[in-house]
Design a protein around this nucleic acid. Sequence first.
DNA 1: CCCAATATATTGGGCATCCAATATTTATAA
DNA 2: TTATAAATATTGGATGCCCAATATATTGGG
Lengths: 124, 124
Amino acid sequence: MTDETGNNDGLCCPPDCCDMRGFLTFQILWELGKEALTGQQIAEKIAERRGTKPTPGTIYPALGNLREEGYIKGDQDGREIFYRLTESGEEARSESARYFYQAFRDIIEECRVLVVQDGECNRC
Amino acid sequence: MTDETGNNDGLCCPPDCCDMRGFLTFQILWELGKEALTGQQIAEKIAERRGTKPTPGTIYPALGNLREEGYIKGDQDGREIFYRLTESGEEARSESARYFYQAFRDIIEECRVLVVQDGECNRC
DNA sequence: CCCAATATATTGGGCATCCAATATTTATAA
DNA sequence: TTATAAATATTGGATGCCCAATATATTGGG
């Protein structure tokens, strides 16, 4: 579903107007809470939401930090490494998800209303 | 509703497990889309969601950048400056809000389910 | 008037997140 | 076998977010 540049067809890219970085580590924990994934698979999952696929220089250091902190473990299979949450990773996912919900629930709900009015965001 | 440390009673502070920074500029645009606010009022609005109040070194440079880029204008009233969105600021708010919705709508919805199961986040 | 509180503002440091570029190893295809 | 592609990894540079500390100007109370 991604084109030759790694961007996701039919989705919007981050706007020029303001910075939309952040919550990468949280998003990794979130995806790994559903199933074990490789670094590339995680990047593709993120691309499905953000419209742009994180580059290796973004995704692998983040995975390395999560591993060092004991939140994830990797099972190597050939050239691939399938990452899964540890027990403390599960706890971290729950904590950060509940915080994220507190911080952005209202905003997202109001964004939904705006999308109904103005339509979805412009394509890449 | 904030205590002597500037934190918000009854809300959760950012978790230790992973970084929860980001989207400050978007959140400022979002709040100013509803009404004109001073820097302090914006910081308090953000504290109502994040549990922690941004310090002057965080909020004022962000406002300065938004002003330089022409997204907001300030009307001084004594020692206070009431900021409001410009026309391009309204457009930036809509664009970034629709992008934010695309990027996080599913995650927030699933977080809601998690909150119902595990309860809300732990207090500050 | 004088002092404390408030609002704005700046500086310096730390850190996560981004990218482009490069490299290494493994798997696949020719 | 050999060449290509894929997955992981690292480096360097840029930028936004975040705080603590400090400073200035204005407001309000005693």
